Amino acid sequence: MWRCAGVRWPPGARVGVLEWEGGRISPLVAGKELGFRAEGPRRCIGARGNACPLGSEVPGRATQARCGECARLDRAHSVAADAVPEDPRTYRVYLAWFGPGMLKVGITAEERGPARLLEQGAVVFAWLGRGPLMAARRTEELLRAALKVPDRIPYAHKRAVRAALPDSAQERAAEVEALHARALALPGWAEALERLDFEAVDHVGVFGLEGLPAATAVVRELVDGGVVAGRLVAAAGPDLHLRVAGDGIVVVDTRLMTGWGLVGADAAAGVSVPTAGVRGAGSQDGLF
Rank of each mutant, 00 (worst) to 15 (best):
R48S: 14
A146I: 10
T254I: 11
R182D: 05
V233W: 00
V17R: 13
A174M: 03
T258H: 03
R116P: 06
R130G: 05
E57A: 12
R43I: 06
A81W: 12
C4V: 05
E221D: 08
A83D: 12
R61Q: 14
R43N: 01
C67D: 06
A145P: 00
V244G: 02
E119H: 07
G12T: 12
G246Y: 04
M257S: 02
V123M: 09
T258M: 14
R144V: 14
L128K: 08
P88S: 03
C4W: 02
A174C: 01
A200V: 03
C67G: 00
R243Y: 06
A96F: 06
T254P: 03
I153G: 03
H157P: 00
I107W: 01
L133I: 13
K32S: 15
P41W: 11
P85K: 11
L103N: 09
G6S: 12
A215Q: 01
W9H: 10
D285R: 13
A80R: 15
P27W: 06
R3D: 01
V149L: 15
L186W: 09
A200E: 05
V58P: 02
P150F: 04
A200S: 10
K158V: 15
W189V: 07
G12I: 07
R43W: 01
V273H: 11
E110R: 13
W20N: 06
A236E: 10
V252P: 00
G237K: 03
L117W: 04
V17W: 10
L142V: 08
A269G: 10
E191Y: 00
E177I: 02
P274T: 03
V7S: 02
A192G: 08
L222D: 00
V7N: 04
R137P: 04
V223M: 09
V123F: 09
G259H: 07
W20G: 08
R43G: 00
I249G: 01
V161G: 07
R255E: 15
G261Y: 06
A178D: 15
N50V: 14
V263P: 01
T63R: 15
A267L: 02
V227N: 10
T108L: 05
V250G: 00
R72D: 12
E69W: 03
A265T: 10
G35L: 05
L54N: 04
V93P: 09
D224A: 10
G237Q: 04
R220C: 04
